[in-house]
């Protein structure tokens, strides 16, 4: 089912942070994980992932470092900082409240 991208727009930070909760990842890995977890429902325009990641890095929600992948390629990895974890918790709770209220209205 295709989802209106505008509905995703407000949730991208939450989604990106959530992807990193499971451990450090590089950009393409995050895209794959997003598709996998959402059963291919969410397919971010891949280039737009990086402004989000770099903004989070600037705000010290994530930290970046270079590492070799399992296949020996050097990639830029990202992981949550403690501040990022706290923000994720906050955003997740916010989403829970928001979505439950939307559900209550839509499905009465």
């Amino acid at each position: 089912m295709a989802i209106d991208q505008k509905m995703m727009a407000g949730s991208t930070t939450l989604l990106v942070l959530s992807l990193l909760r499971g451990g450090e990842k590089y950009g393409y890995e995050m895209i794959l994980e997003l598709a996998r977890r959402s059963d291919n429902t969410f397919q971010l325009r891949e280039g737009t992932l990086y402004p989000i990641l770099h903004k989070l890095e600037q705000d010290r929600m994530v930290e970046a470092f270079d590492r070799e992948t399992d296949t020996g390629k050097k990639r830029r990895y990202y992981r949550l900082t403690r501040k990022g974890e706290a923000l994720l918790t906050e955003k997740a709770a916010e989403w829970q409240t928001f979505s439950s209220k939307v559900n209550a209205i839509v499905f009465g």
Binding site: R45, Y50, H54
Partner: peptide, 17 residues
């Protein structure tokens, strides 16, 4: 194509950097 529109991505990157 999956990367999206270069100009759109560029706009967002410029805002960040």
């Amino acid at each position: 194509r999956a990367l999206g529109d270069a100009e759109e991505v560029g706009e967002q990157l410029a805002q960040v950097y």
